[in-house]
Design a protein around this nucleic acid. Structure first.
Length: 200
DNA sequence: CCATGGATTGTCT
DNA sequence: GACAATCCATGGA
């Protein structure tokens, strides 16, 4: 069934996604995932957005149907994952910057650190599993082949709102991270006091 | 604690 | 040919 999660603008959807569960199922059956705790909004009116200069081969997914996955390579080696939002043919997406791991932590640990999870791992190590946009793609096993996947459409990627949105979910809004244009726009949101937020 | 620089390659100017 | 929606290691305070 079609989700209403992604039909709004990026600026509305980005904070609304906080608290939702993101799950990915690998071809070998391993399931991984966690709670979305940090997001950023981008759209084609925004100088910092990949879609600002129109549709290209790379940014096509940003102009696709709501809920379409957009994965891109950055700094020559890292992948970042977005969810396309809003009308088709309007280039907008929400960047997923951090999740709180809940499912398949052993699998994510192996992917991130290249070895099995130790019995005596620290809370700090655990927080570094998925506290950044490229870290969570590595942990979840996201690749460029995931481009154009539509979530919640019998695909390997699902996004589900929490059963009940806790009233205690405090959300902080700040400028975005790692960009050089439109640095003043406050289009980043994260869950207050969550250990997996990439930066305060 | 904070600052800096290297890795590595597709994309767009 | 510049540079990027990042991460990690290192070195100094």
């Amino acid at each position: 069934m079609k989700s209403a999660l992604f039909v709004s603008s990026a600026k509305e959807t980005a904070p609304a996604l906080l608290g939702s569960e993101l799950h990915v199922t690998a071809s070998d059956g391993h399931r991984t995932g966690g709670i979305i705790v940090e997001t950023e909004a981008y759209d084609q009116t925004d100088e910092a957005s990949h879609s600002y200069r129109g549709r290209t081969k790379r940014t096509g997914p940003m102009f696709a149907a709501p809920g379409t996955v957009y994965v891109y390579l950055t700094y020559g080696m890292h992948l970042c994952m977005n969810l396309s939002v809003g009308d088709e043919d309007f280039g907008a997406a929400v960047l997923l910057r951090a999740i709180e791991p809940t499912v398949g932590i052993e699998t994510m640990w192996q992917r991130r650190f290249g070895r099995p999870i130790p019995v005596d791992y620290s809370q700090k190590q655990l927080s570094q599993l998925t506290n950044g946009p490229a870290k969570l793609t590595q942990a979840l096993g996201i690749t460029l082949d995931d481009n154009y996947i539509v979530v919640n459409e019998n695909t390997r990627i699902t996004v589900a709102p929490p059963d009940k949105k806790p009233d205690t979910l405090r959300i902080v809004q700040t400028p975005r991270i790692g960009i050089s244009k439109a640095v003043d726009k406050p289009w980043r949101w994260y869950v207050a006091d969550n250990a997996w937020v990439s930066r305060r």
